[in-house]
Design a protein around this nucleic acid. Structure first.
Lengths: 64, 64
DNA sequence: ACGTAATGTCAAGAATATTTTACATATTGT
DNA sequence: ACAATATGTAAAATATTCTTGACATTACGT
């Protein structure tokens, strides 16, 4: 399922997928895939994304 | 670095590494490696561990 | 309408997580 | 002391993430 919280947080920082990819040190396609939600990123990548967007894991990756 | 929060949460549920591995559907060595902290599990694995231990991502995998 | 930036998607390969099997040590109960 | 359970660790094989390069589409400014 799509990760809309991530998409929203990125928009809230006015960053493109490419901006976030560079901030985090991965490829743009990886960010796109994480937002699209068709796979399962590593926890280190999730943490790096959270820090770049000033959010926590629960805020971006926890679903209840 | 070791994940002592995970180790503590597992102890708090009185589960062995093997118990947790079975609850989560991975091998015992994977749980051991995650606790030992020498690699980088997937977010889905982290979420499954959290649910088995009734904790959230921030409680087990966030470091500040 | 045109050019540019942002996004969605695909396929092949590189890097790494995870499994399996196996063995050593430590711990606990009897 | 003994048996059983829990933990730490390693090597090889497999599965999956992630990269790179490329192309199509959508949105935006002029």
């Amino acid at each position: 399922m799509k990760n809309l919280k991530l998409k929203a947080a990125r928009a809230g920082k006015d960053m493109s997928q490419d901006d976030l990819a560079k901030a985090v040190g991965v490829s743009r396609q990886t960010i796109n895939a994480v937002e699209k939600g068709d796979y399962n990123p590593s926890i280190n990548l999730c943490i790096a994304i959270c820090k770049a967007l000033e959010k926590t894991l629960d805020e971006l990756f926890w679903e209840d």
